[in-house]
Measured scan of single mutants.
Amino acid sequence: NQASVVANQLIPINTALTLVMMRAEVVTPMGIPAVDIPRLVSMQVNRAVPLGTTLMPDMVKGYA
């Protein structure tokens, strides 16, 4: 099973992602693959992402 990107903290809307905000976890359903974490750094979320939420492609501006 491939790990997905999960929020390590509450990420407010329009926040630029940093490594500290994300962790890799095997979850269902799968979200953004953990291998993409370096690519996500400095991209912004388009909604508030609660702690423990799996990041989906439509939550990150410019990802999809």
Rank of each mutant, 00 (worst) to 15 (best):
T54R: 03
V20S: 12
Q9K: 07
I32T: 02
I11W: 02
S4V: 03
G62W: 08
I37R: 04
G52R: 05
A7R: 02
G62Q: 13
Y63G: 07
M21Y: 09
N1S: 15
A48C: 14
G31D: 01
T15E: 08
V41R: 04
Q9G: 06
L55T: 02
P38M: 05
P29D: 11
A48N: 09
I32E: 00
A24I: 12
V26H: 11
L17W: 02
S42I: 03
T15V: 11
P12L: 10
L17A: 00
R23V: 14
P57C: 14
V41G: 03
V27I: 07
T53S: 08
P29E: 15
M30T: 14
Q44D: 06
L10Q: 10
P38F: 06
S42E: 11
V6I: 13
V35S: 13
A16Y: 04
D58F: 06
P33R: 03
V6M: 11
Q44W: 06
M30I: 14
L19S: 09
V20P: 06
A34E: 15
D36W: 04
V45A: 08
S42Q: 08
R47D: 14
P50V: 10
T28V: 10
R23A: 11
V26K: 03
Y63A: 05
L19E: 12
A3W: 06
T53M: 12
V5W: 02
M43R: 06
D36H: 08
T15D: 04
V49D: 01
M43I: 05
I32L: 08
V45K: 00
M43V: 05
S42P: 03
P38I: 04
A34C: 09
A34I: 08
P29G: 06
A64D: 14
P29R: 03
M22Y: 02
M59S: 07
V60T: 02
P12D: 12
I37T: 11
V35W: 09
P29L: 14
N14T: 05
I13V: 08
N14G: 10
L17N: 00
N46L: 14
T54W: 02
G62S: 13
L40N: 00
T28D: 15
N8S: 15
P57Q: 11
A7E: 00
L51G: 14
R23K: 13
P57F: 07
T18G: 05
P57K: 07
Q44K: 04
A64C: 14
T54I: 15
M22E: 01
Q9P: 00
